[in-house]
Amino acid sequence: MIDKFAAWLRDSAQVLHDNAAYLTELDSAIGDADHGANLDRGFGAVVAVLDETSFGSVDELLKKAGMTLVSKVGGASGPLYGTFFLRFGTALAGAELTPVSIGEGLRAGVGGILARGKAELGDKTMYDAWAPALDAYDAVVASGGDLEAALTAAAEAAAKGRDATVPLEARKGRASYLGERSVGHQDPGATSTTLLLESAARTLA
């Protein structure tokens, strides 16, 4: 399973690199035009760590990824995604990796994002993608679906949540300074979250 999580991080790094210009463009409309570059730098650093280090457990791997993002991303998504991976890893420590435990781990990670960012649903943040994704994931698992099905449903729900951020007025982060002018733009954070989950659906299951 360690290999699969490593593959997820590598794939995510690649996808974020390919989409860096797109994310930055989204961010330039309502933020400080650094989201793509920041995540590319952060996940690039994570890949470098994966190249150099071998990990004995998934939780160690995720926690190291989290610390790397905290240090290397630079923008608000650093502490947010960093906290996500730190708590995701902590939740998985010692646990048998099943669709249920992974779902719980995801929820713990997103709990960290909320604790850190204090966002609420509809604030036009990455949480607007995470929240429906977690619900969709849990619904599939509850009806007996496997990890692939759950992650696929999560990624689809995240994409819907991402699209739903377009008409919202931003209430968090630098975009909130724009007030009404943030309406009509897709949230970059919700976009990168969707990319991460789509990557997970491809690589983790």
């Binding site: 650094d34 920041n38 610390m67 905290v70 290397k72 650093g78 960093g82």
Partner: peptide, 13 residues
């Protein structure tokens, strides 16, 4: 900053 010229903050720092 992440370094002399790159804007950003680092929780570890």
């Amino acid at each position: 900053g992440l370094d002399e010229t790159t804007f950003g903050t680092d929780a570890v720092a």
